[in-house]
C-alpha cells in the first residue's frame, strides 16, 4: 500500500528541465530515501509533493486519490534550508507553526509540552530563538515538523548541524515515528544514514530517476562478484580469469586485493586457486555500500 505516488511528473523552468517524467511510489510506514547530487531536482520534487509549486504535467496521488490542498496538513516538511524567527520565543514560535498546521491553541500547547519534555528542553520555552545554538534550533525545527502528527514526514538533511549524540536521538525518533505508522521521505547526502534507515530508495540525477527500488534489491543488484582477500605471497592470476580491481599492502608482507570473478566461476573456485598460490588470511565478499552505488551511478550518468 502506497501513501504517495507520482505519475509522470515533469517540471521545467524555461529551457531547463528540473524534473523529467518522475514515477515513484512511497510505501506506507516506510523510510524512503530520496537521493541525488546537488541540483538533481530533489527539492523541486519535494516542493511539488508539498504543493508549494506545481508540476507542468503528471500527477501526485496521496492516500489513494489525487492530492488536494488539505493533504498538505497531513504532511510535515523539514526543508534543507530552514530558519526560525530570531526574535520569537521558543514556546510561542512552536505554537505559531503548530497553529499554521491547523492545530488549536490547546492541542498545540499539549503537544509542545510533550515534545519539549521528551527532549528534556522544557526550560527553553521562554528563550528567544536567537539565544539558541544552531543544533538547538534544529531540534526546535524538528519538533515543529512533527508537532501535528503528520502521516507523511519529509525530512531534507535532518541531521545537519547536530552532534553525533543528537543525531542518534533524532534517528531514534524517526524510527519511532515510523513504527507508530508514519511514512518518512528522507533526503540526504549522508549515505551511512541511508544505509542505516532507509527501506526504499530513489536516486535522482539530472532530473531523472536513475535508480529506484528497495534498498535490499538495489544492493543485491549491485553485487559485482568481487571478493576482498587478505594474504601473504603473490597472486599471479596466470590465466587472467580474474580481475584485480584494487591492490594494496596493509602491513609488511600482507596484501589486500579486491578480486572480481569475471566468468561464471564460483567463489570456491577462486578460493582454491588462491590457496594454491598464497597464504590466505581473510576472504570476504565485497558488498557495495550505498556510497559506492551512489558514486558509480552518478558517474555513469556523467560519463554517458
Amino acid at each position: 500500500m502506497n501513501i504517495l505516488y507520482t505519475k509522470n511528473i515533469s517540471k521545467s523552468y524555461g529551457d531547463f528541465w528540473a524534473l523529467k517524467d518522475i514515477n515513484i511510489e512511497v510505501p506506507k510506514q516506510s523510510i524512503f530515501g530520496l537521493l541525488g547530487p546537488n541540483g538533481a531536482g530533489k527539492t523541486t520534487l519535494i516542493r511539488i509533493i508539498t504543493q508549494i509549486i506545481f508540476a507542468d504535467t503528471g500527477k501526485v496521488h496521496f492516500d489513494g486519490r489525487e492530492i488536494n490542498e488539505e493533504d498538505v496538513r497531513k504532511m510535515g516538511y523539514l526543508p534543507e534550508e530552514r530558519g526560525l524567527y530570531k526574535k520569537m520565543k521558543v514556546g510561542e514560535h512552536l505554537i505559531y507553526l503548530a497553529r499554521l498546521k491547523g492545530l488549536s491553541r490547546n492541542d498545540a500547547l499539549t503537544k509542545i509540552k510533550y515534545w519539549l519534555n521528551k527532549f528534556q528542553i522544557t526550560d527553553w520555552t521562554d528563550k528567544k530563538i536567537e539565544d539558541l545554538s544552531k543544533g538547538m534550533q534544529q531540534k526546535i525545527q524538528f519538533i515543529a515538523t512533527i508537532i501535528h502528527d503528520p502521516s507523511l514526514i519529509i525530512l531534507d538533511e535532518p541531521f545537519s548541524g547536530f552532534d553525533p549524540i543528537n543525531v542518534n536521538i533524532i534517528k531514534d525518533e524517526i524510527l519511532k515515528l515510523k513504527n507508530k505508522g508514519a511514512t518518512i521521505i528522507f533526503s540526504t547526502h549522508r549515505m551511512e544514514s541511508v544505509e542505516e534507515l532507509c527501506d526504499h530508495i530513489a536516486l535522482i540525477n539530472k532530473s531523472n530517476v536513475i535508480l529506484y527500488g528497495s534498498k535490499q534489491d538495489i544492493k543485491q543488484n549491485h553485487r559485482s562478484n568481487t571478493y576482498t582477500v587478505d594474504y601473504i605471497g603473490e597472486f599471479r592470476n596466470t590465466n587472467g580469469q580474474f580481475q584485480i580491481t584494487d591492490q594494496s599492502e596493509t602491513e609488511e608482507g600482507y596484501i589486500r586485493s579486491n578480486i572480481r570473478i569475471t566468468n561464471d566461476q564460483s567463489p570456491n573456485e577462486l578460493l582454491s586457486i588462491l590457496i594454491d598460490e598464497v597464504e590466505v588470511h581473510a576472504f570476504q565478499e565485497k558488498i557495495p555500500t550505498m556510497n559506492d552505488i551512489f558514486i558509480s551511478k552518478v558517474n555513469e550518468g556523467t560519463n554517458a
Binding site: I52, V72, R82, L97
Partner: peptide, 14 residues
C-alpha cells in the same frame, strides 16, 4: 523571512 529561510518552513503550510 527570506534570508533566515523561515519562509521555506512557512510555505509548506501557508
Amino acid at each position: 523571512e527570506k534570508s533566515s529561510r523561515i519562509v521555506e518552513v512557512i510555505v509548506s503550510s501557508v
